[in-house]
């Protein structure tokens, strides 16, 4: 989410990797970034009740096997921010990647933050 506090000394070192700049994001919609062979869909919600939000979630739709999640529609359903897959319209919770309709489908999510102008995800 928005700029994080300095990491605590005792916390295991998280590596933050800059994927793109804020200007690459599209408000209330998604773009896709390449991360060492993985495809990360980035969604940007400039204004929500809880402030500005960015989510990072795997781009591969488990149902079709196609890399299309980044091109879905963002929604808010049953209390969760979700992304609707553009091909068969199932909904994934942006927070943790679980699917609202099919529990066996699940997407990887990355912690993500805006650091100045950079969009960064935590890897490792």
């Amino acid at each position: 989410m928005t700029t994080a506090t300095a990491p605590l000394k005792t916390a295991p070192a998280t590596e933050w990797r800059a994927l793109c700049s804020r200007a690459d994001l599209v408000a209330n919609s998604g773009v896709v970034a390449w991360l060492d062979g993985e495809q990360v869909a980035l969604f940007h919600l400039p204004q929500t009740a809880e402030g500005e939000k960015v989510f990072a979630i795997a781009n591969k739709d488990p149902k079709s096997g196609a890399n299309v999640i980044g091109r879905g529609i963002i929604g808010h359903l049953n209390g969760d921010y979700v992304i609707a897959s553009p091909l068969y319209k199932q909904h994934f919770r942006l927070e943790d990647g679980t699917c609202q309709e099919y529990p066996e489908q699940r997407l990887k999510v990355w912690p993500v933050r805006l650091n100045g102008d950079a969009v960064e995800v935590a890897i490792g």
């Binding site: 599209v26 408000a27 209330n28 919609s29 079709s64 196609a66 890399n67 299309v68 091109r71 879905g72 529609i73 963002i74 553009p86 091909l87």
Partner: peptide, 18 residues
């Protein structure tokens, strides 16, 4: 833009492989 299905957003029809 954020309101539309991918087809409208990118003004083309998405096929099964993306």
């Amino acid at each position: 833009i954020p309101l539309q299905d991918t087809n409208d957003t990118f003004m083309a029809n998405m096929q099964k492989n993306g």
